[in-house]
């Protein structure tokens, strides 16, 4: 199994706007390795640094120190993003385009040939069940539909690595189930999925391995089965790892 995503002593500091305030450390010394074909869950409380990690992986944020690589290529090079699909945390897309036009636009950036693009768009619209709305402008979509457009655009280039930031937020139970099925299907095709989530149940069912971070530091990493074996449940494990003490006796 080869390593497809790797971070090495990653540290990210955000300079604070106020004068003479110490910078905010969002990540410190984060080491992660994700192998080909894995579904990797990335957990942590709000503000733990999950989105920041993903932003570094996509080259949006420059690490203060340390390095990150995808497919063995430093993330600062655009070519490292050729084989990945990305779904941001909160997404909106060009409101004045239809889902089909949006997908076509992204396909052009990836340089997909025309006939392949047509096939791919038809497949994806079917997968996320937006065929009936594919010609409507995105501004007329519901939130769940927009989230599904996001999933479709993340898959347009048939990526080998999928980076998802809370893919099921804002979806109804059926929508969540669908996303889970899609992840499962991608896994069966041998793709790698790296996703941040707060849905522990979902993580437990689809992930091979998980990492739990808190305040920018890696607190635990390992196979889901191992972590669950040591604790009553993944939720208990999560709360213990991040050091949560019950408020009520």
């Amino acid at each position: 199994m080869s390593v497809i995503l790797k971070t090495d002593k990653l540290r990210v500091e955000f300079k604070s706007r106020e004068f003479r305030q110490s910078p905010k450390v969002a990540l410190s010394g984060l080491d992660l390795e994700v192998g080909t074909g894995e579904v990797f869950g990335f957990l942590g409380p709000n503000g733990a640094g999950k989105t920041t990690t993903i932003n570094v992986l996509l080259g949006f944020v420059q690490p203060t120190s340390g390095a990150a690589a995808l497919f063995g290529i430093d993330v600062r090079q655009p070519i490292a993003r050729q084989r990945i699909g990305y779904l941001p945390e909160m997404t909106y897309y060009y409101k004045f385009l239809s889902a089909e036009e949006l997908l076509r636009f992204y396909a052009k950036i990836f340089g997909l040939p025309r006939n392949e693009t047509d096939k791919r768009i038809a497949q994806l619209l079917k997968l996320v069940e937006l065929e009936h709305a594919s010609k409507r402008q995105i501004k007329t979509y519901s939130k769940g539909m927009q989230q599904r457009v996001g999933l479709a655009q993340a898959l347009i280039n048939n990526p080998d690595l999928l980076v998802l930031d809370e893919p099921t937020s804002g979806l109804d139970p059926v929508g969540r189930m669908k996303v889970r099925e899609i992840i499962q299907r991608l896994k069966n095709e041998g793709k790698t999925v790296f996703f941040a989530s707060h849905e522990l149940g979902e993580v437990e069912t689809v992930c091979d391995r998980v990492a739990i971070i808190s305040e920018g530091e890696l607190k635990a990493i390992g196979r889901v089965s191992e972590i669950v074996a040591q604790h009553p449940s993944l939720e208990k494990a999560f709360l213990e790892v991040i050091g949560y003490k019950p408020q009520l006796a």
């Binding site: 996509l58 655009p78 070519i79 993003r81 941001p88 997404t91 909106y92 992204y106 950036i109």
Partner: peptide, 14 residues
């Protein structure tokens, strides 16, 4: 503002 920049820059473009 509309956060379309993120999915766009996640594509292989400079």
């Amino acid at each position: 503002e509309q956060r379309t920049l993120l999915p766009l820059l996640a594509k292989p473009l400079t």
